[in-house]
Design a protein around this nucleic acid. Structure first.
Lengths: 336, 336
DNA sequence: TTGTAAGCGTTATCAC
DNA sequence: GTGATAACGCTTACAA
């Protein structure tokens, strides 16, 4: 362990520990000689300040806690990377905790972060209630990414998932698809619900009514995409396109279609959501609705930094965009 | 902020703060009445212990720092998830920091973790020297995953990348491939180097000598896989198979092959390394050498927990395995 | 079983 | 400019 304290270096440098603290922070003027003595001693003894003691004494820890919905999920990871990037130029460093898609774990991870006296919080996705958030982090500056709260005072960086769901569905509709199956995603997850709403809206706009037999649920994993397609096929549903809750689900769906000898996009078109890294590399390259995940993370970092400086910052909505690749077939000009 | 301290609850409960501390820890016997009083007060005032103060006073923080080579990389993320899982049943909670593939960032992230007085460290991959590690974490229990050090005292959880590279290459050889290109990975990265050594060994075993024109470098990203294939094709090299440094690179290679109208596996076979989640879902499903990433993370968690309890633990090597899917064509029984 | 008091390593508030 | 000294919130001997 690093047993060197400022007392030690104060002794060696022949000054008081206040002075040591001063030169270490560089804010206040200190006589050059003493300053040098301190610096030398610091180096010689290999002194490393104890952040724990610092933050207990100062009340600030110069860290911001990042709680992610799930580390390992491409979308959330990309946001986290954005946060890291956005914080890089500041004096704050991020520490991460993982909610693992489970509210209890999310809560305890959040408590752990708060207990560590982080100066601010970035919550990426997640499912705990605003009540729970308030209870555990009263007063702390907090920014929420990839999630919105109906009536809350939180600053949120979010994307309009309804618009995204609408755009994806609309794309299919515009290409002549009418039997559009949807793999909705986690039925309790706001993102899934909103994307579905967009889907419904797009259909209704054309006077169509959503066919309940064509909607099936998933949990955002590839496996659930397989299950979904299997179910659809087993039930003998007819569909020319599938809108998957996210790209991972689309990957699974794509494989399952293959196993049923359904070609993409020749027999069935497929559209995803997120535009994760791998989506450009599957075969065929996946058409999907892109969420600017990294940017969202950076905005969140900017926001928390602003808040920490006492500046204001209000919620912000980023824009997604359709990324057209090759998994959707145009039926409207069909020939084959 | 949570301004309630044990002093407050001591006052309310009519006991001393030592007693409060005692009931909160539950190790020492305390009179039931006082215990109740304390518990009640705790609940009523909404007391949350200040972990910072706790760890300053006790010298332990009950957290273990996890430094990852890069969060967002499927392989490293899977390890991190294993660590989380392995720690879940203990009283320790993990906090994460990200090296972002860059040694300076890795170092400062490590310092931040150590400064936070974590009780132990799990290093996932990474490139800092053992010297640097020793300097920054002297004395701390530390476990290293997915990396080994030649002559060090560290406990490492690793996989034999030479064996992996050998197995992958051998698989190709056994299927009749002779012109095997390799996309090596980061030239400075131990994993890449070792896999290449395995590749060389497999070739030499058959009396072949590695053709330098067939080896090209990458940085483990899909983009670099594209670049690699483009280069190979542009140079007009002849090859019937590609061994990619990792799955991500294989994804890029697969796309590039497609763009050059080279079918996988009909025209060119492709083998990856890692077996990341998505690999089963690309077309064709990728044959790859699987690293048991999650397990490695769990072993690491077990190891650090053991070390923390004063038990011993020695380095351990896990076994990878070839996962045969559909991206490699068997030339030996060739007809087509 | 319980209370007193001395730390833990810094920062912050004063006087000088 | 600089040095005592009191916090910061909690743990932990040491007594009682």
């Amino acid at each position: 362990m690093n047993k060197v304290t400022i007392d030690d270096i104060a002794k060696v440098a022949g000054v008081s520990k206040s002075t040591v603290s001063r030169v270490l922070h560089g804010k206040v003027a200190v006589h050059p000689d003493k300053k040098n003595a301190v610096l030398t001693a610091t180096r010689r003894l290999g002194f490393k300040p104890n952040i724990v003691a610092q933050s207990l004494a100062s009340g600030r820890s110069m860290t911001i806690g990042v709680l992610t919905q799930n580390m390992g999920s491409p979308f959330y990871d990309a946001i986290a990377q954005g946060v890291i990037a956005g914080l890089a130029s500041s004096n704050y460093s991020p520490i991460f905790a993982d909610g693992q898609w489970q509210i209890p774990k999310e809560l305890s991870a959040l408590q752990s972060l708060v207990g560590r006296r982080v100066d601010g919080l970035v919550l990426i996705g997640g499912g705990i209630s605003s009540q729970q958030i308030d209870d555990t982090c009263d007063g702390l500056p907090i920014v929420i990414v990839a999630r919105t709260f109906a009536e809350s005072h939180y600053r949120c960086i979010s994307m309009d998932n309804i618009a995204g769901g609408y755009a994806a569905t609309r794309h299919l509709l515009d290409r002549g698809h009418r039997k559009i199956a949807i793999v909705r995603g986690l039925p309790t997850h706001a993102d899934a619900i909103e994307r579905y709403q967009g889907y419904v809206r797009a259909l209704e706009e054309l006077g169509m009514v959503p066919d309940p037999r064509l909607v099936v649920e998933s949990d955002f994993s590839p496996e659930s995409g397989i299950t979904a397609v299997n179910e659809l096929v087993k039930r003998g549903e007819r569909f020319s396109a599938i809108f998957a809750a996210n790209d991972l689900t689309a990957f699974g769906a794509r494989l399952a279609l293959d196993q049923h000898r359904l070609r993409v996009p020749d027999d069935v078109s497929l559209i995803g959501f997120d535009d994760q890294l791998e989506s450009a590399y599957i075969t065929p390259p996946l058409t999907t609705y892109r969420q600017p995940a990294r940017e969202m993370g950076q905005y969140a970092a900017d926001a928390i930094l602003k808040l920490l400086q006492g500046e204001e910052f209000s919620s912000l909505q980023v824009h997604g965009e359709l990324v057209i690749r090759h998994s959707v077939r145009d039926l409207s000009t069909a020939s084959v």
